[in-house]
Each structure stands twice: as structure tokens, then as C-alpha cells.
Design a protein around this nucleic acid. Sequence first.
DNA 1: CTCATTACTTTCTTTTTGGATACTATAGTA
DNA 2: TACTATAGTATCCAAAAAGAAAGTAATGAG
Lengths: 117, 117
Amino acid sequence: MRKTSSTNFSNETELAAICPMHNVMRVLGGRWKIALLYFIHQGHHRFGLLQKKMPFITTKMLSAQLKELEQDELVNRKIYAEMPPRVEYSLTEKAQTLLPVLEDLYNWGEQYITAQA
Amino acid sequence: MRKTSSTNFSNETELAAICPMHNVMRVLGGRWKIALLYFIHQGHHRFGLLQKKMPFITTKMLSAQLKELEQDELVNRKIYAEMPPRVEYSLTEKAQTLLPVLEDLYNWGEQYITAQA
DNA sequence: CTCATTACTTTCTTTTTGGATACTATAGTA
DNA sequence: TACTATAGTATCCAAAAAGAAAGTAATGAG
């Protein structure tokens, strides 16, 4: 959680004002965000499946990042009233429109970024 | 500085292995990186000018982020042997090829991201 | 001999992020 | 009654990122 009293907080605000790209980075910048979008896109719609794909992510982080993606309206979260519980994540239309851009960025990276620069 | 012994570190490594986009985000994800690329592109080539554009950045952070951008070959750093010292930053060709992609990402953000989602 | 200028570096502290681990809820099954 | 499965929460601690403030270096001007 952010302290609204921190310099950190006010800096982010001022930065967003002079560089609107910052908001985009805020949404995509979480450590696991893009990987999650990718795996959900690949058809891994459930919490457990995503954890199997990324065995090193903790439940806490998976939960937190999915929640942020949901708040930023990049993923839908559909709950089925079953037991044991079933929840399915899917990409929103907003996220769909993002995919081609991410692909361009990915291609740029392929061409120009080596694993450890 | 990163501890290579930390879970943090190994997670980054494993994540990069399954999601190559992660390397791109590593390069662009620093708090001030994209704003810096933008202002350098706009013609603010010197340390002091960049600080004037972003009065809230500390010298430490400005220095660190410029250094990373230089290491990732997105900015050139040209030192003039003068006194007082003069150093000029400029975008590399690699960074030039990135600009159109960032512009697409920016346009996506314009359309889909509100300031605080 | 002090001051100004520029581009930083260093040290210390605060803030934020991330990891480890244990715990919760609910219904069905053995 | 205990055990399974699923999708998480909660708490506490370690690691990393970022900020504050002071210091460094070299030269020319006064």
C-alpha cells in the first residue's frame, strides 16, 4: 500500500502529469503482469493453472497481480458458485486491443534486447 | 544492487526464461526511464536541463537511470573535456527504433487508461 | 584564496515490493 | 470424523527501490 504522504507518491503524481506514458507503465509494470496476460491469453484461465505455469510465483503475488489487472480492467474475473470454488480469468476487450502493441514491443525486444545487457 | 542469492533474483531469471517480454520491461520499467527518453528526444540533452524538466527527481536517481539507459544502449553519453564539465545525452539508433512502438503504446494508453483507474 | 559552475558520488534512511508460511471456507468423499 | 480440492487471506520478515542531504573534482573569475 502506498502512503499518500510519501515523496514517492507525490513524485508519481507529478511524473504522470508531465509524462502520461507513466500511467501505462503503472498498469503494465508489475513484475508478473505481462506474463499473466500472456498465459491467460494462451488459455490458462484458472488460478491453479497459472500457478502451474509459473511455479515460482507465490499465491500472494498471483492474487495481488490478478486483482490489479482486474481493477485496471485488463482481465475479467468470473466466479462460479461451486464447491470447490471455481474462478475463471479472461482478457477484457481492452486487453485484446493491447495485445498487438505488446507484440510490437516484443518484436523490438527480440531484435534489440539480449538477455542480460 | 541485486543479491544473486535472493529468491527475487532467481524469480526474475526464471520469469525472463518463460516470458521474454520481461527483458523489455526490465529495460523500460524504471520509474523515470520513459520520461527521460522522451525529454532527451525533445532536445534536453544535459543533466541539468533534465533536472529542470523534472525538478522532483534526485540527482542520484537521474544519474542511476541515465547510467542504466546507457548500459542498455538506449542513450549515448558524450563527455566534453571542458571545465565546468559538459556531458551530453542523446538517443541511440536502438532507441530511435523504439519510439514508434512507444507511441503506439502511448496512444493505447490515451484511449484506455484513465489517470487513476 | 574563496566562490561559482557542472555533473555527478556517497552514505544513510524511508518506503515499497516481494517471499515464506500458515490459515480460511465449503462441500463432497472415504 | 478426517481428508480432499480450490482459491484464495493474513501476518511477518527480507530485499530492493527511492529519497535526503552532504560531499567531490577541476578550472576560471574576482
